[in-house]
Simulated assay, not measured.
Amino acid sequence: MLRTMKLTAMTLGMMCAAQAMAAADLTVISFGGANKTAQEKAFYAPWEKAGNGKIIAGEYNGEMAKVKTMVDTKSVSWDLVEVESPELARGCSEDMFEEIDPAILGKKEDYVPGAIQTCGVGFFVWSTVLAYNADKLKTAPTSWADFWNVKEFPGKRGLRKGAKYTLEFALMADGVAPKDVYKVLASKDGQDRAFKKLDELKPNIQWWEAGAQPPQYLQSGDVVMSSAYNGRIAAVAKESNLKVVWTGGVYDFDSWAIPKGSKNAAEAKKFLAFTLGADQQKTYSENIAYGPANTKAVSLLTAENQANMPTKAENIANQVQLDVAFWTDNGESLEQRFTAWAAK
């Protein structure tokens, strides 16, 4: 009996040891800050608690050169990296990232359209939206047409100093439906139309370059409306009367990608799928005002949380997904044209 118990204990010990060996430590790189803090609570801690191995969390500023060097020299030390959409597209075309089998994520229809890509998966959604100070306006704006209407809504407007987003907003202000924005912007006539619409508003524009500026400009009364990142407005919602108009917003993802040649690629894919689970997505969005990419997580959030989410059904219904391919092909020329136009 004693011998049997000893053997059982040894077997269990060996099984536990084998399990521990099988659970690889993963190096996960993100953009840091409040975003990383939310990831630690929603993804890293629950993964480790479940006995899946340790997460070694690092951060970077989006330098793709680092990833490319690792892949080219076959010295990959990162297992998963957070990337923005243009970098995901570039990395995929340059064979820097592992391909992802969508089957590991379950049903495609459970995700915000555009989240699942060939070489990565969007794990949260953020939007650039119209924001305004309800204390400074008698009537609430409802569209980019109102944003351009300085007669009924007098005062300065804040816009990001760049072509991206700004040209999309100009076309919507000129009557283009959100779903048709990139179809129109793809033509020379459409681009001319956007710049002509910007000419109308130019004397009333106060440009911004950092995400922290629109809430500051709105609170101080420097501008009455501004384009802004939705998370920045949500962050000051409790101490201000800043509001968001979701119609005509432009949404995009931050995604996970696996550098090609990661020694733990299989385990990294499991972790990636884990972070896209509804419970993990819910916890993430409770800790930062970004929308879950898994739509099943939305209903798990409180009504207060949902109101700030780009992915709430009503909020996303009339938004535009950033067309990464369009900006990859046209970004350089349009940004040059915009810079010249703004300097006039």
Rank of each mutant, 00 (worst) to 15 (best):
M1A: 12
L7S: 11
L7C: 13
T11Y: 05
M15V: 02
A18F: 01
A18W: 06
M21A: 13
A24T: 07
V28W: 02
K36M: 12
K36Q: 10
A38P: 06
Q39Y: 15
F43V: 09
Y44G: 13
Y44C: 08
A45S: 15
W47L: 07
W47F: 05
E48D: 10
G53K: 02
A57P: 04
A57F: 04
V67I: 11
T73V: 07
E82D: 10
S85N: 09
R90L: 12
P102V: 03
I104K: 02
I104L: 01
K108E: 12
D110K: 00
Y111R: 02
C119K: 00
V121I: 07
V125I: 06
V129W: 03
A131P: 02
D135P: 03
S143F: 08
F147S: 08
V150G: 07
K151E: 03
K151N: 06
F153A: 05
P154G: 06
T166A: 07
L167G: 10
M172D: 14
A173P: 12
D174L: 05
V176R: 08
D180F: 12
K183M: 09
V184I: 05
L185A: 11
L185D: 04
A186S: 15
A186C: 07
A186D: 15
S187N: 12
G190T: 08
F195A: 07
D199K: 13
L201T: 14
Q206W: 06
A210V: 10
Q213L: 04
P215L: 04
D222W: 11
V223K: 00
V223W: 00
M225Y: 09
S226A: 15
Y229M: 10
Y229C: 11
I233A: 12
E239C: 09
S240E: 05
S240G: 05
N241Y: 01
L242W: 02
V244T: 12
W246A: 13
F253V: 08
S255V: 03
S255G: 03
W256N: 04
I258A: 01
P259E: 08
K260C: 02
K260G: 01
N264D: 07
N264L: 03
A266T: 12
K269S: 08
T283V: 14
Y284H: 15
S285E: 14
N287K: 13
Y290R: 10
A293W: 13
N294T: 04
N294F: 06
A297K: 05
V298T: 13
T302G: 09
E304W: 15
Q306V: 13
Q306C: 08
K312T: 08
K312Y: 11
N315L: 00
N318V: 03
D323H: 08
V324K: 10
S333V: 09
E335Q: 15
Q336D: 02
Q336M: 09
F338R: 08
T339F: 10
